[in-house]
Design a protein around this nucleic acid. Sequence first.
DNA 1: GTAGCACCTATAGCGGTGTTATATGAATTG
DNA 2: CAATTCATATAACACCGCTATAGGTGCTAC
Lengths: 242, 242
Amino acid sequence: MKKVGEPTPKTRLLRAAAALLAESNGEAVSTRQITQAAHVTAPTLYHHFGDKEGLFDAVVAEGFSEYLDAERNLPTSGQPVEDLRMHWDNHVQFGLDHPHLYLVMFGNIRPERRPSMVASAEAFLEEVLARAAAAARLVVTPHEAARSILAANIGVTLMLIAEPAAKRNLELSAMTREAVISAVATDSEADPTTDTEGTPSVVVAAIALNAALQSSHPDQLSGSELKLFLEWLQRISSRSGS
Amino acid sequence: MKKVGEPTPKTRLLRAAAALLAESNGEAVSTRQITQAAHVTAPTLYHHFGDKEGLFDAVVAEGFSEYLDAERNLPTSGQPVEDLRMHWDNHVQFGLDHPHLYLVMFGNIRPERRPSMVASAEAFLEEVLARAAAAARLVVTPHEAARSILAANIGVTLMLIAEPAAKRNLELSAMTREAVISAVATDSEADPTTDTEGTPSVVVAAIALNAALQSSHPDQLSGSELKLFLEWLQRISSRSGS
DNA sequence: GTAGCACCTATAGCGGTGTTATATGAATTG
DNA sequence: CAATTCATATAACACCGCTATAGGTGCTAC
């Protein structure tokens, strides 16, 4: 009853699952729907994927590798900060192109059950940021920068997905992107909190904090604590070489 | 069979659902579990809430009104931008206090099925921002600012919820908060590191110094000194103290 | 050829899920 | 006291994820 030359049941299952997931607007997709669409019975699914979740993980993994491939194939402009913008936009675009996949990938955050690929997205972003750091464009560590940017990126994408496509305003993305990037990197070298070597200057930051503390005393520290804190700050500020 | 004076079945259902939702770590909660815990049979649930989703909506609505009440009862510092920081922190804290509820409220974004309360959270934020606008502290419209801030706020909170409580680094929140706020509002009319109102700039400077210290440890401070110093720095950065 | 042997798939069914048609009890009202 | 309305319970339906079991299929070995 079956034609030869057709794709194997395993790939048929994958495609059917992906298709149904994309169609059904966020509603649950049953294994019976999937197996029926793939012209396959239940045990086949469990033989190949072990689990319903296993199947969905496979679908997500496919979509995610597509995403990562797109990320890696983005042309590098030679300007790390500009690259950062490109990757942000690519992330948002991927979310809008595959909203349901995206929700499974980044929205469905169960602690301890979170797809490890999110971590690798973070790692990838960190790579890009490491290049920015090497180019003396970073004010904080690549790791922190990556987390902050990714968090904002996901938040913006989720919000854009949530609202009807017609009403989507991509300026939200651009605006937030600039906000978080400019807090983390600098387009040029003029920023006073960055020394010539690219690493955040402890001395400059300490001096800035010291100055700020002159005009306002934080209530998180007691008087004696503050006294010692300022003394240490002074010691750090007066350091000679880096 | 039943004691009198006990809460009505309706509230028992609500409490049982909330409790089970909070306990079961992101796993699905069945109507049978709920009705059994509430000492009630299925039709009672459907009589009062029409739907499983109706019940969960009611639970979420309760949690959300709790959240909004907390928001409204936050003391206003008179400094709109400072209020903004407070509301951001309150949002994050609520997410960390009620992670599962939060995921249902903000994470489980099905287009067209998104709880209307998210919209009212946005509206509330917009109010706060309108006050900032009135104080001439805003560089974009309150609406745009609210969306951008809320998106980043949700993204950060989701990311913090996703990672194990022990490893949570609240600096991610502070850092992103400052990024998105400073892109949208201005603390005063001049250099952000030397304003006349005090605390905010201290926070920024403290965060910068903290970041700088991550990559290079000064030799002017001993190990134990540095440890205490960083702890204080953290305290200043997170401005959680009274 | 055919015996053995993995591999893959199907039949049929289990326990659990959300939900509801129907019926019963309790309270309120005439 | 009768009638009506609300709140709850009994029992069942259709569906769900999943699996014990068995039967094909193609391969290698003799």
